[in-house]
């Protein structure tokens, strides 16, 4: 592992921070490209993106309370620590949901009819694919659980091989990015559906990958992240079931 990638004039360059910034850059570039391709006007992209950043930053922090317990409350609930570079930005799951809520509220406030937010879906997957490489290099959360599989990797502080869980995440997100690119022009993947599918796909994958990660178990042998993903998947199922019922009723009348 290489938590410190290299030094410039004695200043350490941390893998986690560097890949986080690279993720932000590629995600923003992809969002800009998709927004332009979809002819999404700047007057809508800018406020929705800013609101998504605001919601995402807050959601990423608040989710930590659920995942890591109340003992993190003095830091997580302190607004000023959002701007402390010695503290990580928080959970990507909470960030995604917070960004979604922030973007949704902004859309409603600017009176946007329909949803052009599908431009976020491939950008999000690509950013996560890049960001997770930093997590791997920084050996975040001990990387993963012990394994005898041939691709197991050594982890700091243990004498056995572990699952390279952040790399699984990165590989999935890269494949998911390609899938979302293929789906992006499908008629049924418009008006917010591509973003929903993007989030649902990641939640399903994250539920599975949590079995080889080191996060604390919350209930019924499941980690907080798995409970969160299950809740997201149930909510999505209910939403699409309702949509289907409404569509069928509309056809019947």
């Amino acid at each position: 592992m290489h938590p410190i990638l290299f030094e410039i004039g004695g200043v350490p360059i941390y893998a986690h921070g560097l890949f986080l910034v690279l993720a932000l850059l590629v995600g923003t570039a992809m969002l800009g490209y998709e927004a332009r391709r979809r002819h999404w006007p700047r007057e809508e992209v800018v406020p929705i993106t800013l609101a998504a950043i605001f919601g995402g930053a807050i959601g990423a922090r608040l989710a930590i309370l659920f995942f890591n317990g109340w003992e993190t409350a003095p830091i997580v609930l302190n607004f000023f620590t959002i701007f402390d570079p010695r503290i990580g930005p928080g959970s990507i799951l909470g960030g995604v949901v917070g960004a979604y809520i922030g973007g949704y509220i902004a859309s409603r406030i600017i009176g946007k009819a329909g949803c052009a937010c599908d431009a976020f879906a491939p950008a999000m997957a690509l950013a996560m694919a890049v960001g997770r490489i930093g997590d791997f290099l920084a050996a975040e959360d001990g990387i993963g659980k012990p394994t005898n599989l041939p691709w197991g990797v050594p982890a700091p502080g243990v004498d056995y091989l572990v699952h390279p869980a952040p790399l699984y995440d990165s590989a999935f997100n890269l494949a998911w990015f390609a899938t979302l690119l293929l789906l992006r022009d499908h008629p049924q993947m418009q008006n917010g559906n591509l973003l929903k599918v993007g989030v649902i796909g990641y939640a399903a994958f994250r539920f599975l990958v949590e079995f080889v990660r080191n996060n604390p178990v919350l209930v019924l042998g499941l980690t907080g992240q798995q409970v969160f993903c299950l809740a997201l998947l149930v909510a999505a199922t209910l939403y699409y079931a309702r949509q289907n019922r409404n569509a069928r009723n509309a056809c019947a009348t």
Partner: peptide, 22 residues
């Protein structure tokens, strides 16, 4: 927020699992 993320390149952010102790 973006400036904070950029600063993480040279500060090395702490993981939340150990934040209780900080």
């Amino acid at each position: 927020f973006v400036l904070t993320l950029c600063a993480m390149i040279i500060f090395g952010a702490a993981c939340f699992a150990i934040l209780g102790g900080l």
